[in-house]
Simulated scan of single mutants.
Amino acid sequence: MTDTTSAANRAMHAFVERPALMLRAENVRKTFTLHGQGGIGIEALAGVSLEVERGECVVLVGPSGAGKSTLLRCLYGNYLASGGSIAIRDDDTALQHLEITCAAPHDVLRLRRNVVGYVSQFLRVIPRVATRDLVAAPLVARGVAQDEAYARAETLLARLNVPQRLWPLAPATFSGGEQQRVNIARGLIAQHRVLLLDEPTASLDAENREAVSQLIVEAREHGAAIVGVFHDEDTRERVATRRMPLAAARTQTPLGEAA
């Protein structure tokens, strides 16, 4: 039995036997190849394993370069892991989970729409689209009526202290903190069962960090499984149910050698 098959079998049993399990990563590795520098491989993750259940918020901690953001991007499927297994609960499948590392693109997109939300530090959106429409879009994509989606978007924007006068405007000219709060509202509105948060409070003042922290705590208390990176200790203390330390890997592999 191959390592891949063994990992798949372990994931299948874990999701069937543990109804609260939402995310399972086993021995995840990620190596970046620098083609402009002779094909040197930079090892960003070296065998990271993680399980997250409903109602947990696991905060990744470690020095810069430890691979915290890289792990989140692998969990979301933005980066393809170089090795290991990443599985997320998917009740629409017979196996009750989807293996991100070998899933078809349309299955990954479906999982993102229905199960997994991701909030990065930066707002990347289509220009000239109004803030309210941007925030409501994940609900509209699920078939929620536009009026209801708008109402929920406005509630979130108000809680995040985004001025009402900005709601009809595109956020391209907003301040960094305002854009980040729009990004958070967009990421939280669909109430995904798995949330991946990459320094969502990095550009915020204390008042707005507290507003975001409260929303994260509420999501956790409603059963979301959360993995996050937070730059300040007060936020980590506020939202975390446990912490997972990561150590910098960053080994270099010469061209032609296995990573």
Rank of each mutant, 00 (worst) to 15 (best):
S203Q: 10
A240I: 03
R73V: 02
A94M: 12
G47R: 11
G77C: 06
A81M: 07
V28Q: 08
S120K: 08
S69K: 09
A170V: 01
I40S: 03
L215Y: 05
A258Q: 12
Y76H: 13
L139A: 04
R89P: 00
T70S: 13
V129M: 12
D90A: 13
S49W: 10
D234V: 10
V28R: 12
I86Y: 11
E218Q: 15
V16G: 07
L75G: 05
T5M: 09
H231S: 09
L50Q: 02
A14Y: 06
L95E: 15
R142L: 13
L169A: 10
T31I: 11
H13K: 12
S6W: 03
K68D: 04
S85V: 00
T2V: 01
P254H: 11
V182F: 07
L34P: 00
S6L: 15
V144F: 04
M1P: 04
V162L: 07
L80D: 12
H192A: 13
A94R: 14
P168Q: 07
H97E: 05
C102H: 14
T4W: 05
R186A: 13
I42C: 01
I86A: 06
A247T: 14
R124M: 03
R24E: 09
E53F: 06
C102Y: 01
P105K: 06
L123P: 02
R165A: 09
A103K: 08
G77Y: 08
G117Y: 11
E154D: 12
A46C: 07
S6A: 15
R124Q: 13
E51N: 11
T4F: 06
E51V: 03
R243P: 00
E148H: 07
L204W: 05
V52C: 04
A20F: 01
H13W: 09
R250C: 09
L71K: 05
Q191T: 05
T31V: 14
A206E: 12
R186F: 03
R113W: 06
P171Q: 06
T173D: 14
V135C: 01
F15E: 04
V217S: 03
Q214F: 01
